[in-house]
Design a protein around this nucleic acid. Sequence first.
DNA 1: AGTTTTACTTAACAGTGTTAAGTTTTATTT
DNA 2: AAATAAAACTTAACACTGTTAAGTAAAACT
Lengths: 203, 203
Amino acid sequence: MGIKERKEREQEDLRQKILDAASEMFAKDGYESVSMRKIADKIEYSPTTIYLYFKDKNDLLNQICEETFKKLIKDWQKIENKNDDPLTGLSKAMNAYVEFGLKYPNHYEVTFTNPLADYLGKDEHPFEGSMGQKAFEHIVSQVLKSMEAGQIKQGDVATISQLIWAMGHGIVSLLNSQKDFPFVDKNLLREGSIDMIFNGIKP
Amino acid sequence: MGIKERKEREQEDLRQKILDAASEMFAKDGYESVSMRKIADKIEYSPTTIYLYFKDKNDLLNQICEETFKKLIKDWQKIENKNDDPLTGLSKAMNAYVEFGLKYPNHYEVTFTNPLADYLGKDEHPFEGSMGQKAFEHIVSQVLKSMEAGQIKQGDVATISQLIWAMGHGIVSLLNSQKDFPFVDKNLLREGSIDMIFNGIKP
DNA sequence: AGTTTTACTTAACAGTGTTAAGTTTTATTT
DNA sequence: AAATAAAACTTAACACTGTTAAGTAAAACT
């Protein structure tokens, strides 16, 4: 019974082909500028075929984001495996986060600065169980370890983690969206933000 | 020759009528969800009339944002007139910024987290001369004063100002866009962010 | 009263996401 | 091998979008 297996393989191939095409186009031109018809053109299928593999355009985007965030988590796991002290690990993770956000600006944008209207009136909770959640939990565990090691001052782990996230997100979001603002050097901001955070929470 | 004056007044009235209707609708439902036809319906004119007063939908939005940001600047001027010491003034300004961003989430979003694709390939510099720029310059001057007063450590004023902005923006942007994330109390985050910044830059 | 200017509208274009219905291809059964 | 059933994919259409060119009605000026 190899036919079923082959069919599943072919389906998965096409699914991935759609994801790859869409991912490339979203990253290049942004979510709004890429239409389902353009994606269909690229993969040489009719537009409706995409709907056999993805619920709608937003679902397609979400699945791309999940894939993209797996990369961030992978980066972070590499860092964790180096077994630095907790605070160094946290610092490196923050660095990687900002670099990640600047490397995939469109994916970052659609995941972390979703148009508000998308969720108005819906009672879904797309964050729960998502890669984004998994990523955030990584920060939480690093903060907890740093606190237990006495490297940062005692306090509410959730609050501190969220503040760290906000700082990183602020840098990424501003640099990515305010293209015409005369920012100082990116690296200066990235390093400065980490300095500011860690000066702010040292014991 | 009062006819010309009356006509100008009528034009300005209609312009404001459009701005008011659009502003209300954008704030309520978000930019993407509000179409030119819906705005036209509301003011009981044909859709094309709007184009006699505004270049396009984005221009309409930008002018609304300018109006909205005037309110922030007003808030900040009130604070400045209280003549606190510079650091207290800066702290209050940050507070007002975050509160402002949470009060006008849709206006904030479209101004500060503009879709990237909008600016790809354009060589406009909409920030220059905008209310947003004026607002940022307020922060810069407060940072400078605080530094001169020895209330924060010496350093690059632009960098520090941008980091402060990034922190504030991070809080606002996350709270506004990640509706499903279990944030700690808003006020805790707002106050925590200010604490973190000022601990991070004290002398 | 006739002409020009201003203010506004109608109709249309080219595009969007999405769905229902139809067709072609593939696999299973007789 | 031919008929049937199922899967994969496409065509055509709906209801919308921002925007523009062309046309009309109202107001102002001569």
